[in-house]
Amino acid sequence: VTTYKLVINGKTLKGETTTKAVDAETAEKAFKQYANDNGVDAVWTYDDATKTFTVTEMV
């Protein structure tokens, strides 16, 4: 189990959160659900070296 981080650069929601998951795909599903629940529709990137997902909402 690995800890993954999500950085949110949204128009109305900004911040960071983490989740523990067995792999990046599982973490991504959890983070996308979190973003969807909070109304963030954005572009996703992932950095495997830092285990960090970044979501940037387009203006």
Rank of each mutant, 00 (worst) to 15 (best):
V59M: 11
D41T: 09
L13P: 05
E16M: 13
E57T: 07
T3L: 12
Y34F: 12
T45F: 09
T56Q: 07
T17K: 12
T12P: 05
F31H: 01
V55H: 03
F31T: 00
V1G: 09
W44N: 00
T56I: 10
T26N: 06
K32A: 04
A30G: 03
K5H: 13
D23N: 11
V43R: 07
T45W: 07
T26C: 04
M58K: 13
I8R: 01
T26S: 13
T26A: 13
G15Y: 15
G10H: 09
K5F: 14
K20L: 14
V40I: 15
T18R: 05
Y4W: 03
F53Y: 04
K20T: 13
A35D: 02
V1C: 15
I8F: 12
K14L: 09
T3H: 05
D47G: 00
N9A: 08
F53V: 01
T19N: 02
A49Q: 09
A35H: 07
V7R: 04
T54Q: 04
V22H: 10
K14Q: 10
T45L: 07
V59K: 11
A24K: 15
L6M: 09
K29R: 12
K14D: 05
D41E: 10
F53P: 00
K5E: 02
W44A: 01
Y4I: 03
L13C: 15
T2V: 11
K20A: 09
T3P: 02
A21T: 03
L13D: 06
T17H: 14
E16V: 14
K14A: 08
V55N: 01
V59L: 11
D41K: 10
L13H: 13
K29N: 06
A30P: 01
Y34P: 00
N38Y: 14
T17E: 04
D47K: 01
V40F: 14
T12S: 10
A30K: 11
A24R: 14
E57F: 14
D48A: 11
E16W: 13
L6G: 01
V7W: 03
A35N: 04
Y34M: 09
G10N: 06
V40H: 06
D41I: 10
K20Q: 14
Y46H: 00
T54E: 04
F31N: 00
V7G: 01
T18H: 07
I8Q: 02
V7N: 03
D37Y: 13
Q33I: 11
T3C: 13
T3D: 07
A24Y: 14
A49N: 09
Q33L: 11
